[in-house]
Design a binder for these strands. Structure first.
Lengths: 386, 386
DNA sequence: TCGACTTAGTTTAATGAATAAACCAACTGG
DNA sequence: CCAGTTGGTTTATTCATTAAACTAAGTCGA
């Protein structure tokens, strides 16, 4: 139905596109959308809107709700997202363990699991876990989003240093276990997608920079990952941005890499790791060398300025654990990204909204791939509260 | 017909899409394409292909040619682009004059004109020239591409320092004179589009950098300008990339801008202007300070490395007058963009193909906007020879 | 309280575009 | 010269949308 993406059949392509448009309108206004509203929102006739709604209800993607208050005539039947059937499987793979979440179409988490493994039995442990989910929720899996550190084209893991994987056709493997389309997403990309999802109607380019043990970047366009091959994109950590005496040696062997200045490990000392909890990081921030923070902000600002000049993004968002660095760090980045001369607009820079749950990005990506639909920010936030 | 772009009508949307696909197949293989070939290439039935071809012939977009040699059965009727009717108006606006070209659908220039003006009478001179073209070729203008220095969203000139324009709704103004859709294109973007058009089947991101009196950049995706708002994108010249003592003051008031190191004016001396001819520039290159060239290459390479890490382009192309700098400059840029460590792939860097005529980019952009079609590289090259 | 008006939604006939299948046309090759 | 192949057209059918008439259920003013 909606799943069969971009078919060559041309017959029914219009239907699929209209189903997506109708569904998107329900996702954007769950609980208040109506058939008449879909007709108005799409420009289609009321008859067509009714027909589309009937098919979406039939597919268990949406359900009828209460009667809305009258606006001068017959009361409308509201429509909302059907959270009772389809599930999105989210798999967050990390070196020592993976987290599994089952997300309903309204964004709520229905189930959560964790799989621990050693490098040796990881493959089998993952397969077993995915197969177990498939057995527990037969015929209910709509799509799966797999989030992992490393580069991917959506189907295969091209290279993951952390997981020690190279050219692993993971999507294909999982699809044999769960009978639903599987999409692989880089972890920083997923973070960027989740962040863009918090915005009501994201428009234009948005630059997302992850600051953690390493540094990564992602670019979204209108709330979705910028199109094009993503083979190696966003691997910005080992670009040289500091020169001369100030350039520090980096773990990669070069000197003056962005990561050697702006990664949290560089600014907060070697005690920092991504596994630390918030209070522990705050403690590190309190005793950090101000000079290191300043240098990190400056290096980061250099990169932001250059990319902003090229792409003219509407916003720059700094994510990862960066928010613990507080306003002083952000202010310095902002000051350094200002253009002293010429009328060039100043790019807004801010920290990521911490309300999106870890699984949100991969879930959103899988949902978009499967249904061509985006969640409503309220739904995402509600889900994060759960 | 094809022009009515992205209508909300949904009815006929499929037809328009299929007409575009059929037309694209003829543009890609002019003179050898056939109805049966279109059926195979689109996946549509032969009946539909015939119907599409009939409509395209009716619209004077394509014409029947000779009978092709038999491949075992009835000989096919070849189809080619109809160069006898529709014309694309290309207007290249510069501070002291504008060049007008009328390009037929096969890429050949049918007419060429030049309009000289002073800043005071420029507006009226341009209007008169456009109106004159409309009068000379009644009902034959399919679309217009207007190429100019400055930022534009395609409809208005947002800001052009050279032309001293700000928020001028130029497309609207010209559309009242010529009854065809008008598209405004930044000059560097146009150069990038033309360059991408020289490639048989461009895929992925391509970074284009213009080196001339100033420095500008453009990004294309699969041969078209990267999507998204282009309000200020590509204004990369005044980003700081040189730090410390080596940073030279720039005309913009800052120090160490890319332009202050890598613009031809910076590397070849103040005698350089974009108006010089090739031999004059070569003479400047011969007596240029090697140190300046080296510093320019290094600064340029820094930018290329950073953007490549973010977008993972398939290729980086250096255009403008840069090719006169020769292999030594290019080799230095290449060496500096190599990653000494890690497996990161080396981005190919080369000079722009000089065969595309000035008007090619704007013509291609207008053609794509109007018909959703790209020229065949052979056609472009043939046109440039004329 | 009645009647005019509004808004929501369904039913039915008509339209536009694609498909499938049968067909004709023209060529090759044994 | 006939079987097979390729190019292309004709005709009936299917699918999804539209237009228009209609039903349903409310508001509002006199």
């Amino acid at each position: 139905m909606l799943n069969t993406d971009e078919g060559l059949d041309t017959q029914g392509a219009v239907r699929r596109a209209n189903l997506r448009r109708a569904l998107q309108l329900v996702f954007r206004n769950p609980g208040t959308q109506t058939r008449a509203g879909i007709a108005r929102g799409t420009g289609l006739t009321a008859a067509t809107a009714s027909s589309l709604v009937a098919e979406l209800i039939d597919s268990r993607l949406i359900v009828e709700g209460e009667q809305a208050a009258s606006t001068g005539g017959k009361r409308a039947t509201t429509l909302s997202v059907d959270a009772s059937h389809h599930l999105i499987l989210v798999l967050v793979i990390q070196p020592t363990h993976a987290d599994i979440a089952l997300v309903a179409l309204d964004g709520t988490e229905v189930d959560e699991r964790r799989v621990a493994y050693t490098p040796a039995d990881r493959d089998r442990a993952l397969d077993d876990a995915v197969a177990a989910v498939a057995a527990d929720f037969p015929d209910r899996l709509l799509a799966a989003g797999v989030q992992l550190p490393g580069t991917t084209d959506g189907r295969s893991v091209l290279e993951s240093v952390q997981l020690k994987w190279q050219n692993v056709p993971l999507a294909e493997r999982f699809e044999q276990l769960i009978d639903a389309p599987v999409l692989l997403v880089n972890d920083v990309d997923a973070e960027a997608i989740a962040e863009s999802g918090m915005d009501e109607s994201p428009s234009g380019y948005r630059l997302f920079i992850h600051l953690g043990g390493g540094v990564g970047a992602a670019v979204t366009l209108d709330g979705e990952l910028a199109p094009g091959p993503r083979d190696r994109a966003g691997e910005i950590g080992h670009v040289q941005v500091v020169y001369g005496d100030a350039a520090r040696p980096c773990s990669c062997g070069q000197r003056g890499c962005l990561e050697s200045a702006s990664a949290l490990g560089a600014m907060l000392g070697d005690e920092f790791t991504d596994a630390l909890d918030a209070p522990a990081i705050s403690a590190l921030v309190a005793q950090a060398d101000q000079h290191d923070l300043d240098e990190g902000a400056r290096a980061l600002a250099r990169v932001i300025k250059l990319i902003s000049a090229l792409l003219d993004p509407t916003e720059v968002v700094i994510g990862g654990h960066a928010a613990v660095l507080g306003d002083s760090f952000l202010d310095l980045v902002r000051r350094e990204t200002e253009y002293p001369s010429r009328g060039t607009a100043h790019v807004p820079v801010r920290y990521a909204d911490p309300r999106a749950p870890l699984s949100a990005g991969a879930a959103q990506a899988a949902l978009t791939a499967a249904l061509g639909v985006r969640w409503n920010p309220e739904q995402l936030r509600a889900a994060s509260a759960s």
